[in-house]
């Protein structure tokens, strides 16, 4: 699943550790989400989208041609 977490995080000037601390997950989890190795649960995906002020569909995209 593609996502814009890294792009949105960097736009805010946050490190992975900063974002992890705010979201209550480990830095490795944020890294795994950003590289597409781990797909977050719905609550975490919604929490991330809400944090960036975007609809969840703008942050995560499951279409293969995205």
């Amino acid at each position: 699943m593609h996502n814009r977490i890294r792009e949105l995080r960097k736009a805010r000037g946050l490190t992975q550790a900063d974002l992890a601390e705010v979201q209550g997950v480990s830095r490795n989890t944020i890294n795994s989400i950003e590289v597409g190795r781990y797909v977050p649960s719905l609550p975490l995906a919604l929490k991330l989208a809400r944090f960036f002020g975007k609809p969840v569909e703008e942050v995560f995209d499951d279409r293969s041609d995205a």
Partner: peptide, 15 residues
């Protein structure tokens, strides 16, 4: 327009 930064919920789990 960017969303406001919420307060930190709790310490990072790795610590």
């Amino acid at each position: 327009m960017t969303a406001p930064t919420p307060e930190r919920s709790h310490p990072a789990p790795g610590r």
